[in-house]
Amino acid sequence: MSLSFSDDMLKEVQRIVESYPQGKQKSALIPVLHIAQQEFGGWLSTETMDYVATLLGLKPIEVYEVATFYSMFNLKPVGKYMFEICQTGPCMLNGSDEIVAYIYEKLGIKPGETTTDGMFTLKTVECLGACGYAPMMQQGKHYREHLTKEKIDTIVDECWGMLYKIIKNKIFPLGDRGYMGRKLLLEKLTLKASGSMSVPP
């Protein structure tokens, strides 16, 4: 099996398993799937799920059953940043439809689609429990609330900024402060930031 968690992650899995009585490690399935999704590209491939099954000593089908049941597990590849817009009652009252329309206008993606550069995925979800702060969406671990068109603009820019940082850190692993970092900075200054992804200035 080619996939495997890092040692830190394995420790985390161990910690989770230990929070249940002995022999009840199946309970750890949902938390471990969360970790796996985060570690292996934001979605659960069959390979990932099989790995989780071996890790917890479960039948693969038990993992598939659970992974397909819960809406937070993505079974298909998603973009780097996922906008999960709530569209249930209270958010609808406060204009979630316009936000979805604006994202289509701005990024050209409809619910369920990903931008061609693999950067953004738009998903409409049901109530996220932030009705008083509507319209809202989930982006990564956090909620983005009281959405307006301007706020969407800011969030999109922020995502680009974050990606830019990640790419920069990959090229200059020690950052600007280290000697190697400065050296690399000088050496690679002329390099394009990335092969496949376009980075705005």
Binding site: K26, S27, I30, P31, L33, E62, E65, F69, Y70, M72
Partner: peptide
């Protein structure tokens, strides 16, 4: 603290327990 994964039905107590046991809700 156990984290669910997006299912309103897990607010129903027995579905919640199923989910806590690592099963479908």
């Amino acid at each position: 603290v156990q984290r669910g994964a997006g299912a309103y039905i897990c607010g129903e107590e027995t579905a919640l327990l199923e989910s806590l046991e690592g099963k479908r809700g």
